[in-house]
C-alpha cells in the first residue's frame, strides 16, 4: 500500500514538473490574457441574454468585461512581481515577469464551462486553484522559489485579482440574475 502511495506521489511530482516545463516553453502574452477574459465573460452570457439585451449590447458587454477581467489578472501578476522583488531580491521588472507568468492563466480558457448548471461553483473553484498552482510551479521553475515560499509570494496578488473580479464582475453578474428573478414573476 505504501509503495502504491509513493508511486502515486512520484507520478504527481513528475506531472507537475512536466506541467511547469511545458509552461516555461509556451509563449503566451496578451492574447492568452484576453482569451481568459473572454472565456470568463462568456460564462455569464446567459445573464445578458436573459435580460433582453440586443446583440450589439451583448457583444459590447462581453468585450468590456473581457478587458476588465484581463486587467484584474494583470494587477495580480504585478502585485506578485512586487512581493517577489521584496522577498527574493529579484530585480523589479514587471513586464518580463508578466510575460513569464501570464501562461499560468491557461486553465482560465475553460472558464466558459462555469456556465453549466449547478456544478458551476465546483468548476470555478477548480480553475482558480489550478491557476494558482500554475503560478507556484512557474515561480519554482523560473526563479527557483520553493513551493511554500511561492505561496507567500503569489497569494496576495491572487487574492487581489479575485477581489477585483468579485467586486466588479461577480456583483454585476449576480445583479443581472437577480434582475431576472424579479422579471420572471412580473411576466404574468
Amino acid at each position: 500500500m505504501l509503495e502504491v502511495v509513493q508511486h502515486w506521489l512520484v507520478g504527481i511530482n513528475d506531472s507537475l514538473e512536466f506541467l511547469a516545463q511545458s509552461m516555461v516553453k509556451m509563449e503566451a502574452g496578451l492574447g492568452l490574457l484576453l482569451g481568459v477574459g473572454f472565456s470568463m465573460s462568456a460564462s455569464h452570457f446567459f445573464s445578458l441574454l436573459a435580460n433582453r439585451l440586443k446583440p450589439i449590447q451583448i457583444a459590447v458587454h462581453l468585450a468590456v468585461d473581457a478587458f476588465g477581467l484581463g486587467l484584474a489578472f494583470l494587477l495580480g501578476i504585478f502585485c506578485d512581481s512586487l512581493i517577489l522583488a521584496m522577498i527574493e531580491s529579484v530585480p523589479l521588472d514587471p513586464v518580463t515577469f508578466a510575460n513569464q507568468m501570464t501562461v499560468a492563466l491557461w486553465p482560465g480558457l475553460f472558464y466558459v464551462l462555469v456556465g453549466a448548471p449547478y456544478i458551476s461553483d465546483l468548476i470555478a473553484v477548480t480553475i482558480f486553484a489550478w491557476i494558482h498552482l500554475n503560478c507556484l510551479l512557474l515561480l519554482r521553475a523560473v526563479y527557483a522559489v520553493p513551493l511554500a515560499k511561492g505561496l507567500v509570494v503569489t497569494s496576495p496578488g491572487f487574492v487581489l485579482a479575485l477581489i477585483v473580479i468579485a467586486l466588479l464582475f461577480a456583483q454585476r453578474w449576480r445583479s443581472s440574475y437577480a434582475e431576472l428573478v424579479r422579471e420572471v414573476p412580473s411576466r404574468q
Partner: peptide, 20 residues
C-alpha cells in the same frame, strides 16, 4: 470533464431560447 458541463450548457441554452 468537458462533456458533462457542455451538455448542461446546451440544455440551459434551449431553456433560454424558449424563454426568449
Amino acid at each position: 470533464a468537458f462533456l458533462i458541463p457542455l451538455s448542461g450548457i446546451y440544455s440551459v441554452m434551449l431553456d433560454f431560447v424558449f424563454w426568449e
